[in-house]
Design a protein around this nucleic acid. Structure first.
Lengths: 206, 206
DNA sequence: CGCTAAACGGATGGGGTCGTCCATTTACGC
DNA sequence: GCGTAAATGGACGACCCCATCCGTTTAGCG
């Protein structure tokens, strides 16, 4: 059913406010703060988005799509290794730029249908990127797709402090890790953690 | 002045309870939960440890000392690289085993005199370990002491989920990073983040 | 054994967030 | 204009945590 004009307007203001609040203060920001920032009552916020999760899902729908498109770009790159590398760098940069995005990405919401679908697509794409980079002999053979999760979680931990510090730390960590992901001079590794992208649900919930 | 026998007894129970609670639930565990676990009233807890920080300081005094001794072991190893590597592996394992320790280590408390002194000593020791490993030609020349902070923060982020998952993830991450810390085949890196161990105060406070 | 100071712990007030309820306001079809 | 249903937002009760207060209990000395 159609929303009334004022309702539609307020919905947009809420989404904008939530986007900004999540980016700077993380997903734990009080609902009341989002409402205040949107110039709206708390009830309006709750009527439009019955749960915090539904708000988050809506807000990060776009960014998740961006994420998926980054995977597609990686697949389109004629150089498999460069595709892999750039993909990793971009996603990590996104993680650093938007604190809320990081949390949303790591926490995940099984209920959010959109999330599920987009994520499944991203997961297939990722496996493909990894496989191509290995086939080209540039990515070490014992690299596990779960190592990407490892990288994201590590990046999340490294990217604390002021935005400048976070960006610098992330760049350096990513550079270090990309180097050890390369096939040349690879040394033996302990077994991969039993994580799949799907396991992210359980992990970072706290 | 001397504590009465029952008071001393309760103090021990509180410290035990706090150690366990911090290890499993992190430093944010409610004071009341610690008191309950210790079989003690909240007031007793607050009388003995006026602030949460004082409790934390007391609880992690030992573990910090352990940390310092790990640095000493590294310095005592005739093989500088092995000393470095084992030191990193041990500290990261400690981080994984005790969630509270991680937070305490990263959060730090400028007021806690003991912390300050022990940490300053550890910091000097670390610089020495790094210098020796570089001099031996095993650690890459552009390795910055701040990279150890980077490693710890990354490890903290990676070590989420069940204890088994956390341990596996940490081991693998450390293996990856140690490999890229080696002098051989080192590739250019982006500049080191401007972090010193001292900067840890500001960073992970949330 | 009895007394007193030390220690105890439950109750309490203050602050904060969550999510709902309801009296009031507003859009918009007629 | 006007009436109605949709939309609004502040107030409210429930819950949780912190930290203190105070009436009660207990250790340990003489």
């Amino acid at each position: 059913m159609e929303l009334r004009a004022d309702a539609r307007h307020n919905r947009e203001r809420i989404l904008d406010a939530a986007r900004e609040a999540f980016a700077t203060r993380g997903l734990d920001v009080p609902m009341a703060a989002v409402a205040r920032r949107a110039g709206v009552g708390v009830a309006t916020l709750y009527r439009r988005f019955p749960s915090r999760e539904s708000l988050i899902t809506e807000v990060f729908g776009d960014e998740l799509a961006t994420c998926a498109s980054v995977v597609d770009e990686a697949l389109a790159d004629p150089d498999p290794w460069r595709g892999f590398r750039v993909m990793v760098e971009k996603v990590c940069a996104m993680q650093v730029a938007d604190r809320g995005f990081t949390e949303a990405f790591l926490t995940a919401f099984p209920e959010a249908v959109d999330f599920e679908r987009t994520r499944a697509r991203a997961e297939r794409g990722l496996a493909e990127v990894v496989a191509r980079a290995k086939a080209a002999g540039r990515l070490r053979a014992d690299f596990a797709p779960a190592d990407l999760v490892l990288l994201l979680k590590a990046n999340c931990g490294a990217a604390t402090g002021s935005p400048e510090e976070a960006a610098a730390a992330s760049r350096r960590l990513v550079a270090y890790l990309l180097q050890s992901f390369r096939a040349e001079h690879a040394e033996p590794l302990p077994p991969a953690p039993p994580l799949t992208l799907g396991h992210l649900h359980a992990t970072a919930t706290r």
